[in-house]
Design a protein around this nucleic acid. Structure first.
Lengths: 334, 334
DNA sequence: CTGAAAGCGCTTACAG
DNA sequence: CTGAAAGCGCTTACAG
């Protein structure tokens, strides 16, 4: 290749990597030859010699499929623009096993950086391990952790506040809440939003109306069965994600409770499932694709050693569909 | 690393690559040291020296998220076992644009092989392009195309036959069918199964009971609305995948038609959505995870230049849930 | 602005 | 069964 263009191999390298110190006509001659010979530099050789792999890893644990695919495609889109490849990596285990898994990914593939999704980005041990390795990373999630690395997130508390206020506006006073997986920081944020909205509207918080969920369908189903079997059941249930809200709908159907006439149901995320259940879910639109795109963008900027990018907060929005409605419950205004 | 185990670097290489000519105790000592030091050979170095990238690409077009994630994790599992990394790659465009996209992936990343999912594996142009490049690949899908490369598939026709026969066994005689995307070979297979089952049970085929769908929710919803608005509507609808079956349920709910009392609904795939809609879907379990695992396994065997592996057909099974039931329709036995 | 040398961390091909 | 040497195709660090 270098011979064909009549230059040293090093000059080809410079031209392809957009480095300075190549005469314009030399550069053009090289790029033309590259095109003519359909030359593609070897990733392996570049990786070995340059200690760069042009690979970005996205590590995740066990998110719902619909959410995962949105995230995957968002990050993929940004990586392609930057001529990087995205390596999806599902981690297994916890604690030391998790760390070995991630270290293994880093050592084996030589990824240039990592996108760390929730709840992994809430693990102090993992973050410390990454720091020790000095591997660049960004976090994709709401964060309790102060850390120099940038992240992309949204205002979970504000969104939950708004959704709760929306239900209150429909006349609901007995509002059940199904929380998310306790290891996710967002779970606490969403619960906070719910509580603050109740307080702002002078509705007493009842612990029995709040049930622990785990972001999976079955946990929403179980929690809803319990809530709806209470002597004074809620007239609305706000689940911390759509999968659990679908579980709430299932429980209502099983028990012959009409939605939204007898029970309003709201979710969170606005994933595909929200549009495929009946009735369609009122939910909070979380910009998962854009959050992932943004996270990848932040990472690419870190890698190009531009000035450290700031965290980015993306807007959410309420999506009102058919699963929520006015309540005519006589007690609801007590 | 080699020093720590007291052997030559070459011996470590042999042990890790499961090559012969290593004494059992030497091998054990090495593997133990590897574990202790958390050693991971560099992909780049292995790739450069061995002219391999240890990267497998999985190309897909636009499958439903739940299906995609099953496939992704199945292929990922096998790749990890073989110390390969899986590169997910969503292709865009068709025709020449598609080919450029795939060639770009091959040249840029140097993937050692490709897993080609439906309907991409039905494109003659794409297959020819891959052949010209001499890149090893396997197909994951039912196949109309004769080709020397191996594939993993299931008996779509047989499965659709069984499901249709099951509905007939419940007393249904007016059975609607929503076909899949016409570019998928499986779509034709499933329709064939439906038609053959009708024939075997001496039920006349009615073209008006068969509607074109595209494997997406909305197409199932539209098709069902039309079917259910017919003067003599079907008492059962068999959709060619779960997403469309969920659309059928939505249509029934909208029209106040009780499932399964007034209408039985069956899907295909047994993805996550089948268990989250109400009532839960009767469907055909497609072993997506195992199909992908198997496809990756076939590819790895091709790459290790063992004798060319044969295609593998995996078993399906009917999963009977709450969306189907006996019909008491008076006309149904006519 | 361009090039010759060294070396990244493995595997291949060969020798013992 | 094990090892010493060569080299994969680039980039880094240096020299001109």
């Amino acid at each position: 290749m270098a011979r064909a263009a009549g230059v040293a191999i090093k000059t080809v390298s410079r031209a392809l990597n957009n480095e300075p110190n190549v005469r314009q006509d030399t550069r053009e001659r090289i790029l033309e030859t590259v095109k003519r010979l359909n030359y593609h530099p070897s990733l392996s050789a570049r990786g070995l010699a340059g200690r760069r792999s042009y690979l970005i890893g996205l590590i995740y644990e066990n998110p719902s499929a619909n959410y995962l695919v949105d995230v995957q495609h968002g990050a993929m889109a940004r990586c392609r623009e930057g001529r990087f490849q995205l390596l999806m990596h599902q981690v297994s285990g916890r604690g030391e096993e998790l760390e070995r898994d991630v270290i293994g990914l880093i050592d084996q593939t030589g990824v240039d950086g990592l996108i760390v999704t929730a709840p992994l980005c809430q693990s102090n041990e993992l973050i410390r391990t990454l720091d020790r390795r000095e591997i660049p990373f960004v976090r994709m999630a709401p964060n309790k952790m102060r850390h120099r690395t940038p992240y992309a997130d949204m205002d979970d508390e504000g969104a939950a506040y708004e959704m709760t206020a929306y239900l209150i506006g429909l006349g609901h006073r007995r509002i059940g809440f199904i929380s998310g997986h306790p290891e996710h920081f967002a779970s606490g944020q969403r619960l906070n939003g719910y509580r603050k909205a109740l307080k702002a509207h002078r509705i007493a918080y009842r612990a029995s109306y709040v049930r622990q969920g785990f972001f999976i369908f079955e946990s929403g189903l179980d929690a809803a069965r319990q809530l709806l079997a209470m002597p004074e059941p809620p007239t609305a249930i706000f689940a911390s994600n759509d999968d659990m809200a679908a579980g709430v709908l299932m429980a209502a159907h099983e028990m012959g409770i009409a939605v939204p006439d007898q029970l309003s149901v709201a979710g969170f995320d606005d994933t595909y499932i929200a549009r495929t259940v009946w009735p369609r879910l009122t939910t909070v639109h979380q910009p998962s694709y854009d959050l992932a795109y943004t996270a990848a963008d932040l990472l690419l900027r870190v890698l190009s050693s531009q000035p450290a990018p700031k965290p980015v907060r993306l807007p959410y929005r309420l999506v009102c569909r058919a699963s929520t409605g006015l309540t005519d419950d006589s007690d609801s205004h007590s």
